[in-house]
Design a protein around this nucleic acid. Structure first.
Lengths: 339, 339
DNA sequence: CATACTTGCTCAATCGATGTAGCATAGATT
DNA sequence: AATCTATGCTACATCGATTGAGCAAGTATG
């Protein structure tokens, strides 16, 4: 319908519309941004200009508008990957919540590359983002420093930092509860109270450390000690997990704590080469709908994305200090025995 | 490190830097955007200004820069969801490819809401996006019209339209090949050459129609006719698929064509309530790493995201007409029998 | 009839970066 | 000495939208 009549090459501006309507650019601007009543423009003129704007396929130049207004309403988010449900849910819900607050969300996926993370932050600041949510950054403090220098509000999500407020899952409690569940199910199904294996993650990664602490706490509660060689931390990737498992000896029946859904892919791949897959019970930190359907899976610690994001927006609104650290409990999803 | 010394409230501009450095804003601009050699600014001045810019935590105001330059280098993408690997891969690879071409990618997730789709397109155009990739839109033509009126290049991805060039998977061939594979495996494992069930999708959705055509073609090849009640299209969602399956009667052994990974979730949920899950063989259009590990799954038709996106960028560069329709073959991933 | 108020607009400065045109000085060439 | 060239900058208009200030014409009030 909307037809850019003659000079179809360039986008129309308020000056073009003003010329066509026989009014001033100021009037057009006021009409199109809704301040026309306050500025005492007649309804008749308003209607005419609006009509012309539609005909010409006009869209404000937000570059110019924001330059003048000195408010961008842009909120940026940095995400490492889109390859699991957790970050997918974060991105999706962040967008919806930002929009609901009248903000324009910009999300960038930085592939866990520290330089790309900084580059993305710099770009978002250049686009006049008013706040930045830094999710799962490998080096959150560098980004926070950079934001602070530019006077932009930053919040860490998922991985904590020291230079900006941080919202993270309660990895300790989540891992402890999940470990308890796996221990219980191993005891029930295999009739043995024995230490579990821990697979995935990096030994110096904050989240892995907290989860390992929870894993240990659940064992300590029932006076089990975990042999060192049962902690296998070759990174999160599926390939590394699968490779690491191949080199290990396992008893006839055993339980595994899987540190992420990505790691879980590797574990399941390895598992599928077993003759008897019923030898294993496992639980996974984080949630995936297919992983939830695996018969060996006794439960998943699902991170509470909605609550975390609510805290993120609160933190931004309150302009909290860098010492703030909020831990959001995970939602335990015990899985029923199939069949 | 970078410390915004006194007036930490507002971001420094080239005028602030010029004042501190004792030069003109023009010089600062030239130095910071790299054109200073051409403009015969001395290396000494350049070094000094760069230093000051870093100290002050300066970042260009791209709003102002783009307004002046009249080129934004922004490329927008509209995506329906982030809840499966296909759209996750699209978003991730689109970002990487856009960046590699010196463009700034903006992605928005529109939740399959036609109004939100149009709203997002309008917003991206207002941000001076130079091109728009419209992925899986419910109403691509409305968006294409809108883009055309604003003089913005649009390309449809995944779902085709008539008002802009479209890049889609070759759903027909992918579905036909997948159907062949399931039929073969059903024959091998169950010793019977019988028509399959088709589950998921909407009867008037382009992709579903094409896949159903492929499904039928593979049956026709071997002179099998598909009874009407074996085509179950209650939408893509997992819940609807699970609910639809519950009401059906199935023989002792049978095969299913699953129309998407989301649908697959519902199918597997339903499956997990079966006493004997080995009664079924299934194949799924689209790919998911966990779904690939299910023992009943004989293969997946993985959409070739990298190739599709390459075609998208080519199409944008060549400013192709609305009649262009490119079909990209799927990658068949037959799955080995586990154990 | 003069003054005040209302209505319906227009003018012009402004946001920050860019780039063309041009100016001043130093050194080289005729 | 006069001209030319190179070097190293500065001045200013510009991109499009916004907004405080203000103007002109009409209506109401004293």
């Amino acid at each position: 319908m909307a037809e850019n009549s003659e000079n179809s090459s360039r986008r129309p501006t308020i000056y073009d519309l003003a010329q066509i309507a026989g009014t001033s650019p100021s009037a057009v601007s006021a009409i199109l941004n809704g301040t026309w009543k306050k500025r005492r423009i007649s309804a008749k003129t308003a209607k005419r200009v609006t009509q012309i704007a539609t005909e010409q396929g006009y869209a404000v130049n937000l570059q110019a508008s924001m330059l003048r207004r000195e408010r961008s309403h842009i909120i940026g988010m940095i995400v490492p990957k889109y390859d699991n449900r957790y970050f997918g849910a974060i991105a999706e819900q962040f967008e919806a919540m930002a929009r609901a607050r009248g903000l324009f969300p910009i999300i960038t996926c930085t592939q866990r590359d520290p330089d790309l993370e900084l580059e993305a932050a710099r770009e978002m600041i250049s686009y006049q983002a008013e706040a930045l949510v830094v999710t799962g950054a490998t080096d959150p403090d560098r980004i926070a420093d950079f934001c602070a220098a530019a006077g932009v509000n930053a919040v860490n999500l998922d991985l904590p930092g020291n230079k900006a407020p941080s919202i993270v899952s309660d990895n300790f409690s989540g891992a402890r509860d999940l470990t308890r569940l796996i221990l219980t199910r191993v005891a029930q199904d295999f009739g043995a109270t024995v230490p579990l294996w821990f697979i995935g993650g990096r030994p110096h990664d904050h989240n892995s450390m907290e989860r390992l602490r929870g894993f240990r706490a659940a064992h300590d509660e029932i006076d089990l000690s975990v042999p060192k060689d049962r902690i296998i931390m070759p990174g999160y990737s599926a390939d590394k997990a699968a490779a690491a498992l191949v080199g290990h000896e396992f008893p006839r029946q055993f339980g595994i704590f899987v540190n992420s859904t990505i790691t879980m892919e590797g574990v399941v791949r390895w598992l599928s080469n077993m003759i008897d897959m019923d030898r294993v019970r496992l639980g996974c930190f984080d949630w995936d709908p297919f992983a939830a359907l695996l018969p060996q899976n006794v439960g998943m610690a699902r991170q509470d994305v909605a609550t975390m994001l609510r805290r993120v927006f609160e933190t931004i609104d309150e302009k909290s200090g860098p010492s703030l650290r909020i831990e959001v409990p995970c939602i335990m999803q015990p899985l029923p025995q199939p069949g």
